[in-house]
Design a protein around this nucleic acid. Structure first.
Length: 242
DNA sequence: ATGGCTACGGAGCGTAGA
């Protein structure tokens, strides 16, 4: 079972990029974030030839999450904060998966920042309720948990502030494992005059419940995808399970 | 450099991203 999580930054702008990744890596499951489209305008037809079942939770302009799976997608749940399209959970291929897009929070101290912390706490509660299942949570957490996850020395601003890091530490304390620790950055700003591998953040994560950890083989960042034509600012991350 | 770039909505340029 191979799972890719990817913040595509608009699925309509990334159709060609997505198909290229699907054909190269052929994962069983995709967890997508920032599809940035309402359900009625999702380009389902573009993906017909890839053979995925697709469930989406869209929203106008911003946010939006999706699950693609070669297995039936059951028990779909938009949980956590249902008024925003930032969470989609389902049972597929014998395991539970969730695609998560945590709010970015804009800057430390503003209302959006406290909303982000509140979202992370609600997410933690959901993950606590699910912790005895085989559960793989993948997504854009918009938090860089450790100093090595940010290219700027001693950076503790948005994504790396102590309350944000504490919020993901509480998720780890449930015995979920952040399986791509030390695997390198996953996001690089567009505003860098081109992609620079050393100027990124590791903000896209896979968290595995204890039973999912028993099936874990390996994972990595698909860094080459960040060098596509017209790329997303995030690279996909891949997780292989037995 | 309080910016740098990209996408959306909607037809300007404001907003969001992190």
């Amino acid at each position: 079972m191979n799972i890719i999580s990817w913040n595509v930054n608009s699925i309509r702008a990334r159709v060609e990029n997505f198909i290229a990744v699907a054909e190269q890596y052929n994962p069983d499951v995709f967890l997508l974030q920032e599809i940035r489209v309402e359900d009625h305008a999702f380009p389902f037809d573009a993906f017909d030839s890839l053979g995925y079942n697709i469930k989406i939770r869209g929203q106008k302009s911003f946010n939006g999450v999706a699950i693609f799976s070669k297995f039936p997608i059951e028990e779909v749940d938009i949980g956590v904060v249902p008024e925003e399209a930032r969470y989609l959970q389902a049972f597929t291929g014998g395991i539970f998966v969730a695609s998560v897009y945590v709010p970015n929070g804009q800057e430390v101290g503003v209302p959006q920042y406290f909303h982000k912390l509140d979202f992370l706490e609600k997410l933690r509660q959901r993950m606590a309720a699910m912790q005895n299942e085989i559960f793989v949570v993948g997504g854009d957490f918009n938090v860089a948990p450790y100093p090595c996850d940010v290219y700027i020395e001693n950076y503790t601003d948005i994504t790396a502030s102590p309350p944000e890091r504490d919020a993901v530490a509480r998720i780890r304390m449930l015995n979920y494992k952040d399986v791509l620790e030390t695997c390198g950055h996953t996001w690089w700003s567009y505003r860098q005059r081109g992609f620079k591998p050393d100027r990124g953040f590791r903000i896209d994560h896979f968290y595995l419940s204890p039973k999912a950890q028993e099936q874990f083989i390996d994972g990595r960042v698909l860094i080459d995808v960040r060098q596509q034509q017209r790329p997303s600012d995030h690279a996909p991350i891949i997780c292989r399970l037995k």
